[in-house]
């Protein structure tokens, strides 16, 4: 995840990036940072219970402060002076969320003051969507679900086999699993970080950017979210677990998630079935 943050920072032309996962999310407690300074400032917000990431998670929208030394910086009595002292003037935070599913935050810092212009903001939003998908995906190598599985299987899918103490209750292990598990998910992560890296001087352009955008675009198709709601009711699980199950099932069927979602919405496919409805 640190490597992902390095690439995010480079493609978005900022000096540091950090990702943290919300307590409710699957990989809760997992964090990553492009460098120690960005990581410290990300952690600091959790400790102080204030800062752009705190606000982004709370309000559900991006928090963009082009100049911490200006009036916008004054809302954080302790975060702002510490960040300025660390040599950063601009901070940006993006909630990583899919409707009601809250996954975490993406935090960016830059030494020079100034906002993100329209293009950079659009890129940052695509990157935030991509990171949300990475956080959502289960650790690799786990058995795919099938259409008749029970909810325990959902947990099995999320717990990485071989991860120490892997299971819903061991958050640290899951966090490690998400970041470290080898296999399909990691390859996917490599693809994505590869796409994120682009050329050295590249903005998000060309084929790699198109692939990223296409991946993130699946977040905007209504069927995915409708199917998520249906799977929630079918299995009696949270929205997040439902979406994870849906995506795992799509992989198992060799489909893209959109196709599986359409099958679920059309009631050609259902998950579970023996649970109270």
């Amino acid at each position: 995840m640190d490597r992902l943050c390095v690439r995010v920072a480079s493609v978005l032309h900022v000096d540091g990036a950090a990702i943290s996962v919300t307590s409710g999310a699957i990989g809760r407690g997992a964090r990553g940072a492009s460098d120690a300074a960005a990581g410290r400032l990300d952690d600091l917000q959790l400790a102080l219970d204030e800062g752009p990431c705190h606000d982004a998670a709370e309000d559900g929208g991006p928090v963009l402060v082009g100049d911490l030394a200006g009036p916008a910086g004054q809302r954080w009595g302790r975060f702002t002076p510490t960040t300025l002292a660390a040599g950063y003037r601009a901070v940006f935070a993006f909630p990583l969320r899919i409707g009601a599913i809250e996954l975490g935050t993406l935090f960016l810092v830059r030494a020079s003051p100034g906002g993100l212009d329209g293009g950079a903001l659009a890129d940052a939003l695509v990157v935030a969507d991509t990171v949300a998908l990475i956080l959502l995906d289960p650790p690799a190598g786990s058995p795919p679900g099938d259409a008749t599985g029970d909810p325990a299987e959902g947990r099995a899918i999320m717990a990485a086999p071989g991860a120490p103490g892997g299971g819903l209750d061991d958050s640290a292990a899951e966090g490690r699993a998400i970041m470290a598990a080898p296999g399909a998910s990691e390859c996917d992560l490599d693809d994505i970080t590869g796409d994120l890296a682009g050329g050295p001087e590249d903005d998000l352009a060309g084929e790699a950017a198109a692939r990223l955008r296409a991946r993130a675009a699946s977040l905007y198709r209504p069927e995915i979210h409708q199917a998520t709601g249906m799977v929630m009711a079918q299995l009696g699980v949270s929205a997040q677990e439902a979406l994870v199950r849906l995506r795992a099932l799509a992989r198992a069927r060799g489909q893209i998630a959109d196709e599986t979602a359409r099958d679920i919405v059309a009631r050609r496919l259902r998950l579970g079935g023996d649970l109270p409805r």
Partner: peptide, 27 residues
């Protein structure tokens, strides 16, 4: 464009939540 970006993000999140809720109700 901070405020506009926030507004648009809220609009998107709200639409996704409505889709998720529709799915729950439909099922």
């Amino acid at each position: 464009h901070e405020l506009l970006a926030e507004q648009l993000q809220h609009a998107l999140t709200s639409r996704i939540m409505i889709e998720q809720a529709k799915g729950v109700l439909a099922e």
